[in-house]
Design a protein around this nucleic acid. Structure first.
Length: 287
DNA sequence: AGGTTGACCTGGACGC
DNA sequence: TGCGTCCAGGTCAACC
């Protein structure tokens, strides 16, 4: 971990999976929790909004940020009544592929593709920016709180993990990406986990042996934990920063390394398409 | 019903 | 230089 090796391609774009979302959540917890939303600006693009803009503005305006949590790739901002701390509802943000949710000072230039700005009592602003608009945001009133399927990959035990895959014919990579089973794993960490577990991405999920499932369970935990640790270094710079610092500090062993030597055996990394996604693996180390 | 595919989006890379 | 084309992938609808 640490610096990016010269072997790696230079990524300019951030793909938010569980560790990146966790980093954003920790940044918001640190720099926005307890603050009160004074006013809300919502842009013209409606395809990102799953609640009416008036509803979002109404629920957010005047609310205190009681806490910020992650559920899979969803960011859950718990809103409270400022006077008594009573639950008021939740502001949900999904970053899609290119979304960013940052806390910044108001004098920082407003980026192109900024869709929501929440101005806080402290003077800071929470900004939701998403060029590609695969992201989504909406609100829930407290009586109908946000719920999502799937279990947290860092919390699930081995027997439950194994039970998800035992009877599935779909490729193991597709199953790892299925948010109704495990929530938060995306394309990059699916490839990285399968490499560390030594399992080929196209293998049918049901074909994995108990030993392979045990290795995969461990690999998923290891990869996500390392990535969160790498992202953690960006939190102190979160205010006013572009929010991207730290996201790609973890070295990828297979993702984006087509044709480059496997770090374990030297065989060129292969790239195939699984579940419509670019998929990278070592044909020698993964069976 | 589980599994698979394409649509949604924009910016960047690439070819001519 | 500039234009057209392709590709990236999270999620969901619409198929088989």
């Amino acid at each position: 971990m640490g610096g990016r090796s010269a072997l790696w391609p230079f990524y300019t774009c951030v793909m938010p999976e569980l560790p990146e979302v966790e980093t954003v959540v920790r940044g918001l917890e640190k720099h926005a929790r307890g603050d009160v939303i004074e006013s809300v600006w919502i842009g013209e693009k409606r395809d990102l909004l799953k609640s009416a803009p008036e509803e979002i503005a109404e629920l957010l305006t005047g609310a205190r940020i009681g806490g910020v949590r992650r559920m899979g790739k969803h960011i859950v901002v718990d809103l409270a009544m400022p006077e008594n701390g009573e639950a008021r509802g939740q502001w949900i943000v999904h970053l899609g592929m290119t979304g960013k949710l940052t806390v910044c000072r108001p004098d920082v230039d407003v980026e192109k593709h900024t869709h929501v700005v929440a101005r806080l009592e402290s003077g800071r602003e929470i900004r939701f920016v998403d060029p590609r608009r695969f992201g989504k945001t909406w609100v829930h009133r407290s009586e109908a709180g946000f719920a999502t399927g799937g279990l947290e990959p860092l919390e699930v035990d081995l027997p439950t993990f194994a039970s998800f895959f035992r009877r599935r014919k779909t490729p193991i990579k597709s199953a790892l990406l299925n948010q109704k089973l495990l929530r938060g794993i995306g394309n990059i960490y699916a490839d990285e986990s399968l490499f560390r577990a030594g399992v080929r991405p196209r293998r049918s999920a049901a074909s994995l042996t108990m030993d392979e499932l045990r290795r995969l369970h461990g690999a998923v935990r290891e990869v996500l934990t390392e990535a969160i640790a790498a992202g953690g270094s960006s939190i102190s710079d979160y205010v006013g920063a572009d929010g991207e610092r730290g996201f790609f500090q973890m070295e990828h062993r297979v993702y984006g390394r087509e044709g480059q030597p496997c770090l374990h055996c030297g065989t060129p990394i292969k790239r195939i398409v699984v579940a419509g996604r670019g998929t990278h693996y070592c044909r020698v180390c993964q069976r």
